[in-house]
Design a protein around this nucleic acid. Structure first.
Length: 679
DNA sequence: GGTTATTATTTTTTT
DNA sequence: AATAATAACC
């Protein structure tokens, strides 16, 4: 038996709930994950539900992993076995790998990331003849928006989103169709398709939806405030045979508007699922009182929200700090100094996190941490697979797995350089078009169509054949190593870059990739297929990575990540950096004049990650596009400056010290200087 | 036809 | 600062 006695009253109500829909409105730090994991344990231990009948869906793999670990501390391993705790996208891929053939795709589809997407859009825009030129990214994000709202390219022209007077609408219409046709021809799908096609599958074949709905009798959706219309439809399909749906969320933490998240999903839950039970968790167990007060006041300025106020029994401690720093390096140095002190007090770095609005802020801090010898881990950011050499490698793997993947094939055709340039490529693209075949097949037929280039091409084709053979017998890491050898990739690196440091860095990246393949192999054994590996890579699912340390202890490292990836996590000490205008709120948001509230929620999310200590920083000067720009404190804090909810210290003038301390500091500084000169 | 140099342009957030 | 588009050069 699992006892729910350790939970507070509303938590107990939520955890004890078994059948029918339930909405849990869980404020930041209100013990959401605890409640949810107890509910899962309760279903299994006390109500005879089997693990495999439970599906828990989260937004990030980090959250899924966290939940998995927490459930494991409550349940014995055999009992928790079979539980499905995963992200929307992983779930979608899993379903599509099984059933996508019903809607006319092959099972071995490739998944395209944003750079693959851009190349198709670029191509589509080239053959869309208009006087005006269109921004690739704008068009691509429009297509993403449409997909996330469930609008197919056929439906677009007649949808509410199409504006006949807007040239962008016409461009988008053309590109959307071209893009979708190409993807299908390449046997590829993009991230949004993962959900879009799953929903299409469910709509066109209700029996398939029924199958999954019956399999997953109890469904849990985390961060429900961030679901978009597509995810809503997906959930509708999964609950087509029952209403055992538990959604958990907090409207104040809705931060995925750019991905089509629709706050109405949570606000109107009771309308969509009749007789839903609603539970509110408002007691905060996480943050010290001053931090919580600041958070409450920051978010109170938003107009669009369900009014609630988090409260806590925790004691008064020191006020949050706001540091005004000189420039970005200074900001990083000051933080590193402080972390060093913290560490020499014998405290664990695993309880320290540095949060920022955008990944571009990370690199300065990262190099400063490295200089200061402070161990750290960075979540998200420039991912390994985003680097050029890794993309090349993955492109090889992808072509080996799915030869129709033209984007990848084109990427590697002349990498390393083998004398097959753009002009040759264009010729073969034309042949392919005339013959109605794929580029791959057109290349195969090179001796008939382009005898002058045939030898080069066929040599390349033989290489691919050989690699395919290798991967069918060798293990994944062996295969990758052989791939690098056979393509002579290391020599290519030497030739490409003259900076030896850069060559070294790229070599290390490749080694890291091989290491990753090894871990993947060890963790998944016979299931460590090429397909699964590439998929994991793209979906950022690193569960095998983290598996390294057997005990549940977090490594003694500072964690760096964006505010978006920090949602759902908590730390003793939080450094929230760049709390300045045009960073938080972001410049783009200010310019658009919309969604400032979402930026404020982001700020709120950041503040509420902290348990004991919160330090916010901003720079008076920041380097942008190589130039120094003057910056100012964020409006989110300006609004509250009179209320004394935090202490501002100017770190450029020793403002964090008292007058006496400052004098002392200056004295010792000069003494040191004199010593140095005398030496 | 293929490779390299120059210049333009850009940086939100995630799967 | 880094990348993509364009121009100039083998």
């Amino acid at each position: 038996m699992i006892s729910l006695a350790g939970l507070n009253t509303p938590q107990q109500k939520a955890a004890a709930h078994v059948d029918g829909p339930i909405l849990v409105l869980a404020g930041a730090g209100s013990g959401k994950t605890r409640t949810v994991t107890y509910r899962i344990a309760n279903l299994i231990e006390n109500h005879g539900v089997k693990g495999k009948e439970i599906l828990g869906v989260t937004f990030t793999n980090k959250a899924a992993q966290e939940m998995r670990e927490r459930v494991r501390t409550l349940l014995s391993r055999p009992k928790s076995r079979g539980l499905t705790l995963t992200t929307f996208h992983s779930l979608g891929v899993r379903i599509l790998r099984k059933d996508i053939e019903a809607i006319g795709y092959h099972k071995d589809f490739s998944i395209y990331d944003s750079s693959d997407q851009i190349s198709i859009v670029r191509e589509a825009l080239k053959n869309f003849h208009a006087e005006k030129s269109f921004d690739q990214k704008d068009v691509l994000s429009k297509i993403g928006f449409l997909k996330n709202h469930g609008v197919s390219c056929d439906e677009y022209a007649n949808s509410q989103y199409f504006n006949d007077d807007d040239p962008y609408s016409h461009a988008t219409e053309h590109v959307y169709r071209y893009y979708q046709d190409k993807l299908k021809f390449y046997n590829a799908i993009d991230f949004d398709d993962i959900l879009f096609l799953t929903v299409k599958l469910f709509k066109d074949f209700p029996d398939v939806a029924k199958k999954y709905s019956q399999q997953y009798r109890y469904i849990l959706i985390d961060e429900y405030q961030d679901t978009n219309p597509l995810q809503f439809s997906l959930i509708a399909g999964l609950t087509s045979t029952h209403q055992n749906l538990c959604v958990v969320g907090d409207d104040d933490q809705s931060i995925y508007g750019f991905r089509g998240a629709d706050i109405r999903n949570i606000l109107e839950f009771e309308k969509h699922y009749k007789n839903a039970v609603v539970v509110k968790l408002e007691e905060n167990y996480r943050s010290s009182n001053p931090i919580l007060t600041l958070a409450n006041e920051v978010i109170a300025k938003n107009k669009n929200r369900m009014i609630k106020k988090l409260w806590s029994k925790s004691v008064e401690t020191e006020l949050p700090l706001l540091w005004a720093c000189g420039h970005t390096e200074h900001e990083a140095q000051v933080i590193c100094d402080e972390i060093n002190h913290y560490q020499s007090d014998g405290k664990p770095l695993s309880e320290v996190a540095i949060l920022y609005r955008s990944n571009t802020q990370a690199s300065v801090i990262e190099s400063e941490l490295r200089l200061a010898n402070i161990p750290y881990q960075m979540l998200g950011g420039q991912k390994l697979y985003d680097k050029k050499e890794i993309k090349d490698l993955i492109a090889y793997l992808s072509v080996i797995h799915n030869p129709h993947d033209e984007i990848s094939l084109r990427r590697i055709l002349n990498v390393p350089n083998r004398g097959i340039g753009n002009a040759t490529l264009d010729k073969f693209l034309l042949h392919a078009k005339i013959q109605g075949t794929t580029l791959f097949e057109a290349l195969r037929a090179a001796s008939k169509t382009e005898p002058s280039k045939a030898e080069l091409i066929l040599q390349f084709m033989r290489l691919l054949d050989e690699l395919k053979k290798i991967f069918s017998t060798a293990t994944l890491p062996e295969g990758v190593a052989l791939l690098l050898e056979k393509t002579d990739y290391y020599n290519f690196l030497e030739k490409m870059y003259d900076n030896p440091k850069q060559i070294q860095r790229r070599r290390e990246d490749l080694n890291r990739f091989i290491e990753g393949a090894k871990r993947f192999q060890e963790y998944h054994g016979q299931y460590a297929t090429l397909e699964n590996f590439i998929e994991r890579m793209l979906l950022q699912d690193n569960q095998d990575d983290e598996k390294g340390d057997e005990n549940d202890v977090r490594r003694n490292e500072v964690t760096m990540m964006t505010l978006h990836s920090a949602k759902g996590l908590e730390f003793d000490v939080i450094y929230l950096v760049g709390v300045e205008e045009e960073t938080l709120p972001h410049k783009k948001t200010i310019a658009s004049g919309e969604n400032i509230e979402e930026e404020r929620r982001l700020c709120y999310v950041g503040i509420t990650r902290a348990r004991e200590k919160l330090v916010m920083t901003y720079c008076k000067q920041r380097k942008l596009y190589g130039k120094d720009v003057v910056r100012f404190r964020s409006r989110f804090l300006n609004d509250l400056i009179e209320q004394n909810l935090f202490i501002e210290q100017d770190r450029t003038t020793f403002g964090h010290l008292t007058k006496d301390e400052a004098k002392q500091y200056q004295k010792s500084f000069f003494n040191n200087l004199i010593d140095e000169i005398e030496d």
